[in-house]
Simulated assay, not measured.
Amino acid sequence: MSLQEKLDAFKTDFEAGKPPYNVPYSVIETMHRATAELIASGAAQKALKAGDQAPAFTLNDQDGKPVSSAELLSQGPLVLTFYRGVWCPYCNLELQAVQATLPEILAAHANVVAISPQVAPNSRKSARQNELTFPILSDPHNDVAAAFGLRFALQDYLVDLYKSLKNDLPAFNGDPSWTLPMPARYVIAPDGTIVYAEVNPDYTRRPDPAEMLPAIRKAAA
């Protein structure tokens, strides 16, 4: 089953209100509205694309160790996956799919890191629950996401919904701003050029990680 098929299956059950979700349809309608507005805003079109130069960064991994993009690129291509947080089931399915593709990525002499605004304890939870062997980096205030053009502020009505669902992003992220990154995947060549970019303002839509492999192999050649 492809990643998108798994995401679609989860979405069908979630939106049908099947246990253990039991989500009222009014909640689903609000989420649909927020996604439609983010798509209509054109924010995704402003994000960095293939051919652009990737911003350099140094972020701490889930164990507090600083990880430098420059150091990773000195070893070969770099795969970045931006995700919302451990609280997002769609993100967890994506991380599992990246992990499943990791042997092929490593065989192409590339490194992989995930980037999320969440604080380190939640990144450790992500790594543990999804059985990840690649680093999860904490991006305070979504600053690196912003440098890639991915950061957006949640609409006020969506903030109210998240609060009602006890989905406390300021606590998850250690940041009161109520911002998130649009889910995105990038492949960066050793010279810092982006050679693959996938950004989707609809968090339920994500390409299979295997789609990156041709770009990774080309960048490593």
Results as ranks from 00 to 15, higher is better:
Ala40Asn: 05
Leu161Asp: 02
Ala197Lys: 05
Met212Lys: 05
Gln75Ser: 08
Ser74Leu: 00
Ala184Thr: 04
Gln155Thr: 12
Ser123Phe: 04
Gln155Tyr: 10
Ala47Ser: 15
Asp61Ala: 10
Lys46Trp: 00
Asp8Gln: 14
Gln96Ser: 09
Ala97Trp: 07
Leu80Lys: 11
Val199Tyr: 00
Asn60Pro: 06
Val187His: 04
Glu71Pro: 00
Ile188Ala: 06
Ala54Ser: 14
Asn130Lys: 08
Leu169Ile: 14
Asp63Phe: 13
Ala146Arg: 12
Pro170Lys: 08
His32Val: 14
Arg151Cys: 07
Thr193Pro: 11
Phe82Met: 15
Thr12Tyr: 00
Lys65Thr: 15
Leu137Phe: 08
Glu71Gly: 09
Cys91Leu: 04
Val27Asn: 11
Ala215Glu: 04
Ala43Val: 02
Ala108Pro: 00
Pro55Glu: 04
Glu211Arg: 12
Lys6Trp: 01
Ala220Pro: 00
Thr12Met: 08
Met182Phe: 02
Pro209Tyr: 07
Leu72Lys: 07
Ser138His: 07
Ala40Trp: 02
Lys65Arg: 14
Arg128Cys: 04
Ile188Lys: 04
Lys163Phe: 01
Ala147Asn: 07
Arg185His: 12
Arg185Tyr: 03
Ser68Met: 08
Lys125Gln: 13
Ala50Asp: 06
Lys65Leu: 08
Pro103Arg: 02
Asp143Asn: 14
Ala107Gly: 11
Ser126Asp: 05
Arg151Tyr: 02
Asp202Trp: 05
Asn173Cys: 05
Glu29Arg: 13
Asn92Pro: 06
Thr179Asn: 07
Leu213Ala: 06
Asp8Gly: 13
Ile136Arg: 02
Arg205Gln: 13
Ala9Tyr: 03
Asp63Ile: 01
Pro214His: 03
Thr133Asp: 00
Pro89His: 13
Phe14Leu: 11
Ala221His: 09
Leu73Ala: 11
Ala184Leu: 03
Arg185Gly: 10
Lys65Cys: 04
Asn200Ile: 04
Ile216Val: 11
Tyr203Met: 13
Pro121Ala: 14
Tyr83Gln: 03
Leu180Asp: 01
Pro19Trp: 06
Lys46Glu: 00
Pro77Gln: 14
Thr81Leu: 10
Ile115Pro: 12
Leu161Arg: 10
Ser177Arg: 10
Thr12Ile: 14
Asn167Cys: 08
Pro55Ile: 15
Glu211Val: 06
Trp178Glu: 05
Leu78Ser: 05
Arg205Phe: 02
Lys163Ile: 10
Glu15Gly: 03
Pro117Ser: 11
Pro135Ser: 14
Ile136Asp: 08
Tyr196Arg: 12
Ser68Phe: 13
Phe152Trp: 07
Pro24Cys: 12
Gly17Cys: 09
Gln75Gly: 10
Asn122Ala: 11
Leu73Tyr: 05
Phe152Leu: 10
Gln53Asp: 09
Val67Lys: 06
Leu95Cys: 12
Asp156Phe: 06
Pro176Ser: 12
Glu94Gly: 15
Tyr90Phe: 15
Ala70Phe: 00
Val195Ile: 03
Leu7His: 08
Thr35Asn: 00
Pro77Gly: 14
Val86Lys: 11
Ala197Cys: 06
Asp8Glu: 15
Lys125Asp: 03
Leu38Ser: 03
Ser164Ala: 09
Asn60Phe: 08
